[in-house]
Nucleic acid binder design. Structure first.
Lengths: 195, 195
DNA sequence: TCCCTCGACATACACATCGTATGTGAATTG
DNA sequence: CAATTCACATACGATGTGTATGTCGAGGGA
């Protein structure tokens, strides 16, 4: 009742995911050919359609993977901070810096929403967003900041971070621009910590 | 030295822009066929490639048009307010509400960045963003709010608004969600008005 | 007036790509 | 040991983009 090999299947999925991730990042979703990326993985489109359904399914799988990785990185950053509030700020700084990575920016932030629709409707439910929402909720619960809708705040801050990252990435002087963005971001975030 | 008719050219462009706008909004950029939308306008792809170069050029033209309309609407809203600060808040509220319109959301906010790259690199230079940047700059100049980098602030708030709009649009209870988003947005914006 | 060029648009073609339908060989099961 | 099933490959049809070429009407010079 099993296929050619027991662990071969998982390995095939991995190879396809790796190839797709690289192709999508390098050329963008639309310009990435499924023939090319499967060949790169030493397979054909047959394996791809069998494992992921269609091109959108593959993109979804790639995004789920990246999103999980991002959430894990954020969690580490947040827990390393001295205070919960500083943890939140650190997380967003990390988010902005991560969003500058071409792979994340191109696949998750640009092509993802265009192809799959708004992230809030994704099955992965944006692990990354869930992480920051959780953190804001606990800040409110601890009385560290005045009451605020955690999900709403997390979404808006995510949007601000994302745009900041795109701006920084497209800038001529990324370092300077990053500082400008982070300063402005702190100002906005402080709106949450005040009554 | 002119073509078939003197004003025919401009009219052709208009017809194509209208058809493209509708097709892009209804089906999304990728799924919109140039054969179909030109036929809808009573023309062929020949006219399209002659006037706009390629499919991306057409999208750019459509976005420029919509962006200009949005900026004009924002300006009206901002000028109607009692105080400059309230004008800014009103502008963003209007922005969030506009971004719920499927035409704007699909074309400008989702497909635009994916196809043309980050908006800050667009030739239209985002008239809409320029408008809010200008307004923040004048608030700072008047001493109404503490010094802040106007462009950075405008970009972050635009990102927050945009995400808020996507969230609201994808929500089951848009009215409720809109209020949650606007509340959170006010909290963030107030970060700018405090030292 | 006549002809020639030029520009706006239409038509025809070459090429790429996606999704599906079908084929194949190995491994499991009874 | 035969039959089934699963993982993947191959073959095919449909669609869509971009380009190369054709056409027709409108001025400008002789």
């Amino acid at each position: 009742m099993a296929g050619r090999r027991a662990q071969g299947m998982e390995e095939t999925r991995e190879k396809l995911l790796r190839a797709a991730r690289q192709a999508f990042a390098a050329k963008g979703y639309a310009a990435a050919s499924m023939d090319d990326l499967t060949a790169e993985a030493g397979l054909t489109r047959g394996a791809l359609y069998h494992n992921f359904g269609d091109k959108k399914g593959l993109l979804q799988a790639v995004i789920d993977r990246i999103d999980a990785e991002m959430a894990a990185r954020l969690r580490v950053v947040g827990e390393r901070a001295e205070t919960p509030w500083q943890g939140l700020l650190d997380e967003y700084r990390a988010y902005i810096e991560m969003a500058r990575e071409p792979e994340i920016q191109r696949i998750v932030l640009l092509d993802g929403p265009a192809v799959l629709g708004d992230p809030s409707t994704w099955p992965s439910q944006n692990a990354c967003l869930a992480e920051t929402t959780r953190r804001i909720r606990s800040l409110v619960a601890d009385g560290a900041i005045p009451p605020v809708d955690p999900e709403a705040a997390a979404r808006l801050l995510a949007g601000a971070s994302l745009h900041a990252a795109l701006w920084v990435a497209a800038s001529d002087a990324p370092e300077t621009t990053l500082e400008r963005a982070l300063d402005a971001f702190r100002r906005l975030a402080e709106g949450l910590s005040r009554p």
